[in-house]
Simulated scan of single mutants.
Amino acid sequence: MEQGNRTDEVWVLGATGRTGRAVAARLAADGVPPVLVGRNRGRLERVGATLGLTHGPKAVVAGTPEAIAAEISRQRPAVVVNTLGDYARTALPIARACLPGGHYVDLAADVPAMLRLAALHPEAQGAGSTLVTGAGFGVLGTQAVVTMLGEGARRPAGSGSTPSPRWPSRPAVWGGARGQHRRRPHHRRTALRGWPAGASPARLRLVPPHAARRRDRDDRRRPVR
């Protein structure tokens, strides 16, 4: 499939949000003037004024994923960085608009969004486009890495660290309304809450919400030694 002519622009969607501002600032610092995309022109201009560019960055005003996709199809940027959130809804129309020849990056950390974008692989491959989902180090990436570290872990010689006997045998993706689980260490009284000194990642485990709340309550009642 022919890629067609594209600009060399890098668009940052959701540029007035915290993550969008950080991405735009990093691009500007690296000598890549970002195109700021958002719903409010005044806020986009205020963000642009903080980037230290000689000329104010270009701003694109669009209020919905469909409107943003239409602008991408019309103006044909080289790269689109999606920081809008709600990726299960926003990723597909925006990523499709980048085809052919454009490239797409988002920060999704939920399985449905990732699977939907992954389904575009054959289409993107044929169009000469790269689609990157789950960029950064979000919750899903963290859980997957820690789970892999815990798989088949052995007790190191001379170390008191042992893998949790309740460690999941595969990456834990827990869905539904009870799907937001917390990682807590075995040792609760530590200098750094949430990561005991000298402990390895293999000691972490996923704790259901009701158990996490109960432990928090117990921690508050227990005197510090």
Rank of each mutant, 00 (worst) to 15 (best):
R182K: 13
A211E: 14
T90D: 06
R116F: 01
V80F: 04
P201V: 01
R116V: 04
V139D: 06
P185I: 08
N5V: 07
V61P: 00
Y87A: 04
R41D: 11
D86A: 11
L99A: 12
P156S: 11
T130Q: 14
L51C: 05
A127W: 00
S164V: 14
V47G: 00
G85P: 00
W167K: 13
G134R: 00
T50K: 00
V173A: 15
V23G: 01
V37M: 04
I68F: 01
V47N: 00
G17K: 03
T130W: 12
P171A: 12
G152M: 09
H186S: 10
G126D: 09
P33L: 06
Q143Y: 06
E2S: 14
A49F: 01
A70W: 02
A197G: 12
G152P: 00
T16V: 10
A144G: 05
G42I: 14
A70F: 05
P185M: 13
N5W: 10
A177H: 07
A70N: 04
G17T: 01
P201D: 04
E9V: 01
R41I: 07
R6Y: 14
T50M: 00
P165Q: 12
R21L: 09
E71D: 08
R203F: 01
G17Q: 04
F137T: 02
A202R: 03
V146L: 15
S159I: 09
R96F: 01
F137C: 07
Y87L: 04
V173H: 15
I94T: 01
P77K: 03
A157K: 12
T190C: 15
P165R: 14
E151G: 09
A91W: 00
Q75S: 11
A199H: 07
W174T: 14
W167F: 14
V224P: 03
R18P: 02
P57N: 13
G4P: 03
